[in-house]
Nucleic acid binder design. Structure first.
Lengths: 303, 303
DNA sequence: CGAATAGTGTCTATCAGACAATATAAT
DNA sequence: ATTATATTGTCTGATAGACACTATTCG
């Protein structure tokens, strides 16, 4: 941090040091701040036909609340930011305490600052996204005293409306979220409203329905999925969800589950080619032609 | 907001209502939260040769601090978030009070949560970016009692270093920022460190030098410019910086000033074509061939 | 005419979508 | 042989970079 280092006197005739000594931070009421974590991973679905490849599913880690408010409902792992830890540190601490994992990809997403977000008190929450390869890394969700569980996440745009306004246009999108863990089923409906007025665009996220999802976490989840979907297209974050060795089909499946649409294999392989490197290993016992295993080839190894 | 609506009792035997009634928000110390504004605009430079087009420059609005800390230095307009206003409202309020403008494009950028950001007390700040067309809209910077001024902003990457680590690589980028308003000249150096360790990437922003720029605002500015540069490539936000009618050359110049590189006119015109619509008007008295005036054609008018 | 900008045409390289075709294991 | 996946080849259409060329105004 740059030092302010000023010896000049302010309008009350105080030096900076004197000013800071008499500064009372307590005069104004302050909101609480939390860091909330969207921890994503990819898991294989149970498979009936031994010859077919197992389907992938996107999973999100949630914690059952043991206290009011929203007691019994499921929430994103998160907690209040302490006075002596940075926002990133609070997020990393939360990640560590819920998954036991330390060196994990993590990224700040958005800060939610509406007034009535929490019935207890004014809370401003910054959401983070973390990506975990649960097939290699041992994630101890559910082993903890806390009731943390992986939920299969389905995200789908159910309705899109376009309304013309006198000076622009409004696009409304209704997104349905479904989360499942064994027989626990949660769901939420989030409306995303984009308003175009001349050149000015505004986006508004609103929770229309929330079944078993605590607070306004349904819209944090929706926002996170949108971000994951867009960032997977132009960055290398997918590889955080993959084991060190993987087949190109598996990688394509991960893209397909996250984007929720099918991709053409030849185009996919061409596009991903510069970011992967073939190994001498192959899959075995698959009931069909074996597949070559690849590893991630980071951009900085390029040339 | 979804209601929690639970009648169940917690471990102390309290209903939700009872729990909320006895909840004391004051037990934990809480940080202050501010919303800080990067207000950008484009202005014409003074021109010597009457036949040449005026050059454009990117301008940023700063306010001179009249109080400790960083008294006399220049800061982003910003202020504490009140208990009864949302984060967005606080940002909009700040924008309105500094520029007198109301209906302006505004977007949340990032939340800065390091512990020692402010010598007074723990402060977490969310930065926003606003884009203004100062040629049409009357912006009252400097007319206010407050010392708000438009500064010409220069942003340039001065050094890039690539270090190989045992398990990855580190990319360091040194960015120089220069801000000028008449004979006031401010500058800052920000180091952006990208660490690649396997698939995990982390980005770290650090202020190395700060001449006349208050707090850690130099890195907020750097982050804002980076975001502006990238978003101008894949969204329509430029048009927030343009008057209702403009020439394609002027639009290209705005792209060039923001991206800090020259573009080829034919390629530019092709790319921008679907987003603009020709009018019957032309520029006049230019000392050369007149140029046709265009207007923004929003995506939603497409078909 | 010359200076300066406005605007068009075209060649090429690259890349994504589409789909055909071939390869190879397990049973 | 059949099934299911793996992998390659190729055609086509869209698009960006590069650059040559033409147009139009003022002085």
């Amino acid at each position: 941090m740059p030092k302010s280092q000023s010896n000049s006197l302010n309008h009350q005739g105080l030096t900076e040091q004197q000013f800071l000594d008499q500064y009372d931070a307590g005069v104004y009421e302050r909101p609480s701040v939390t860091a909330d974590m969207l921890i994503f991973t990819i898991m294989d679905q149970e498979q009936d036909n031994y010859r077919k490849l197992p389907e992938k599913s996107l999973q999100l880690l949630l914690i059952q609340r043991g206290e009011h408010p929203f007691m019994g409902q499921w929430a994103l792992p998160g907690g209040f930011v302490g006075m002596k830890e940075s926002l990133d540190e609070a997020a990393a601490r939360e990640l560590r305490s819920e998954t036991g994992l330390n060196e994990i990809y993590m990224e700040q997403l958005y800060t939610w600052g509406e007034v009535e977000r929490d019935p207890r008190t004014r809370v401003i929450s910054t959401s983070y996204m973390a990506l975990v390869d649960s097939s290699t890394q041992q994630v101890r969700a559910g082993e903890d005293a806390q009731d943390a569980r992986w939920f299969e996440l389905n995200y789908r745009v159910m309705q899109e409306t376009k309304t013309h306004l006198p000076e622009g246009c409004r696009l409304e999108k209704e997104v349905h979220i479904r989360l499942r863990h064994q027989d626990i089923e949660l769901s939420g409906v989030v409306k995303v409203t984009r308003t175009y007025c001349g050149t000015i665009t505004g986006v508004h996220w609103e929770v229309l329905q929330s079944e078993g999802i605590a607070f306004d976490h349904a819209k944090m989840i929706a926002y996170g999925v949108e971000r994951l979907r867009s960032k997977i297209e132009y960055t290398d974050i997918v590889f955080n969800l993959m084991p060190p060795l993987f087949t190109l089909s598996a990688l394509q499946q991960v893209y397909e589950t996250i984007l929720d649409r099918e991709l053409l294999a030849p185009a996919f392989r061409r596009k991903i080619a510069p970011r992967v490197m073939a190994t001498n290993e192959y899959t075995r016992d698959a009931g069909h032609r074996p597949s070559q295993l690849y590893r991630f080839r980071p951009e900085w190894e390029d040339a």
